[in-house]
Simulated assay, not measured.
Amino acid sequence: MQEMTIDLNAVTGTKHIRNLSGKERGIAARQHFCLDSIDGQPGTVEVRIPEYVDTISPSFFQGLFSQSIAALHGKDAFLKKYHFIVNEQQKRWVDVGIRNATSSRQSLV
């Protein structure tokens, strides 16, 4: 099984951006990493969030990953494919992002 790596350092301007926010920026990051293609490929994806990133807004996370969660048919399959390498603070932001992306109100937006 092939493993890929997504390093969000590529979208932080090499330590200039400490807060990842905005759905549009998340969508741009999704396009940068070609996630539509990756979602359909076998294997796992390691997602690395640099230590210097303080905040990942739910809107950024949804722009980046909500289509992946939908394509993989939910949270469990998403977390089997995407493995997050994060610190404890970032893990909380990831958990909030997943929760928001899988909430029933998301279908209304």
Rank of each mutant, 00 (worst) to 15 (best):
Q67N: 14
V47D: 10
D54W: 11
P42K: 08
R30P: 03
T5C: 12
V86P: 00
I6Y: 04
A101P: 06
I17A: 11
S107E: 12
R92E: 14
A28T: 03
I85T: 09
R99E: 15
F61L: 12
D36P: 00
K15Q: 15
G43D: 09
G74K: 02
W93Y: 15
P50D: 04
E51M: 02
S21C: 11
P42M: 06
F33K: 04
R30T: 09
V11E: 11
E88V: 07
M4W: 04
V86E: 08
H16M: 13
Q67H: 13
V11S: 07
L64Y: 03
L79D: 03
F65A: 03
D36T: 05
T102Y: 08
A101H: 05
W93R: 03
T44H: 01
H83P: 00
P50Y: 01
F84Q: 09
K15V: 10
H73S: 14
K75T: 12
R25F: 11
A10P: 01
V45R: 01
Q106N: 08
S68Y: 02
L35F: 07
S107M: 10
N19D: 13
T55R: 14
E3F: 00
V47Y: 10
P50W: 01
S66F: 05
V45P: 01
H83D: 12
H83E: 14
Q31A: 13
R99G: 02
R105M: 13
T44D: 06
L35D: 08
M4V: 08
I85A: 11
G63E: 04
I56Y: 02
V53H: 05
Q62D: 12
L8E: 02
S107T: 13
C34T: 09
Q41P: 01
E24N: 06
D95F: 05
K80P: 00
G13T: 10
S68L: 04
T55W: 14
E24C: 00
V96Y: 10
E51R: 08
T102E: 11
L108Y: 10
S107W: 06
S57A: 15
R18W: 04
K75E: 15
T12I: 06
V109Y: 12
G40V: 02
E88H: 07
R99H: 11
E3C: 03
M1T: 14
S57C: 08
L20Q: 10
E3P: 00
H73Y: 03
V45G: 01
R99P: 00
G74V: 12
S66H: 10
G63A: 05
V11A: 07
G97T: 05
I69F: 04
G13D: 14
R30K: 13
H16N: 11
S66A: 13
R30D: 04
F61I: 06
E24V: 06
D76N: 09
G40D: 07
S21Q: 12
G63F: 03
I98V: 10
F60D: 10
